[in-house]
């Protein structure tokens, strides 16, 4: 078992020399069944080729920075076990649908702008004074939004979304799911700030419910559900009499 290896084909791209990304093969020792793709990349970086660039931080599925295409599917590389691919080679490529900076590193500016545009924080018309005590919530009130609050901004859903791939103006899955997370929070009063952003032409209406965002999400968030529910809610606000309009 000590000599078992796995072939990792990693995308390489140097903006100063390359026109197109290319794949480079590395033989990585596979000595432990619990090894993940990120371990293999770290082995390459430390022992074979120090020039390989990629993002990572926590290696435990919390920071959301090691998302890449593993054999064509967006995955957190810290959560993609080599044993699921061996003895076939693993192809590691940068996340789909984003501009490439170098090797496996993508430009996430667009997502960061979109994230900020939906104001992902609790908005109050008037802050309660500290003396008033804590904002209390029932279990049911927490259940309303808890699922959507699990998002770690890893952008796998954007890489999986063909609509975003075809039109980068689309607000996208994670941003809409987070907008819904705050809109459903009983402590929040920011619906009127977020709704125009979410319900713009390039917002929820762009989505045609492919549903792949929810399939690839490593945290079990269901962005596709968030988007469709937001469509229905927004429509009802306008269709029902005395709806709470902007």
């Amino acid at each position: 078992m000590a000599d078992k290896t796995i072939t990792v084909r990693a995308a390489r791209f140097d903006p100063e020399h390359d026109k197109e990304p290319r794949l480079q093969s590395y033989e990585v020792p596979f000595y432990d069944e619990s090894m993940v793709v990120l371990d293999a990349l770290n082995h390459i970086k430390n022992h074979i080729d120090g020039s390989l660039s990629y993002r990572w931080s926590c290696r435990m599925g919390i920071c959301g920075s090691c998302g890449m295409m593993v054999n064509g599917t967006p995955k957190l590389t810290c959560n993609a076990f080599l044993r699921d691919y061996w003895p076939r080679p693993v192809v590691v490529q940068p996340l789909n649908n984003f501009p490439l900076i170098r090797d496996l590193v993508i430009d996430m500016d667009d997502f960061m702008h979109k994230l900020k545009s939906i104001k992902p924080w609790i908005i109050r018309k008037q802050e309660l004074p500290l003396g008033a005590g804590e904002h209390r919530q029932t279990n049911e009130q927490i259940d309303d939004f808890r699922q959507f609050s699990e998002c770690i901004n890893c952008m796998l859903c954007y890489a999986a979304c063909p609509i975003y791939g075809l039109n980068e103006e689309f607000l996208g899955p994670a941003a809409t799911a987070l907008a819904r997370r705050y809109n459903l929070d009983s402590r929040d009063e920011g619906l009127k700030d977020r709704l125009p952003v979410v319900a713009e032409a390039e917002g929820i209406w762009e989505c045609s419910f492919v549903g792949e965002c929810s399939v690839v999400c490593p945290k079990g968030v269901d962005p596709a559900k968030a988007i469709q529910q937001t469509k229905l809610d927004t429509t009802m606000r306008f269709v029902l009499p005395y709806g709470n309009r902007e």
Partner: peptide
Amino acid sequence: MPLNWWTRQRHYFLYMLREF
């Protein structure tokens, strides 16, 4: 985005079938 994106994965293909 390659225009044949929907042929590359079963889930995408079923989505296109649903729309069709």
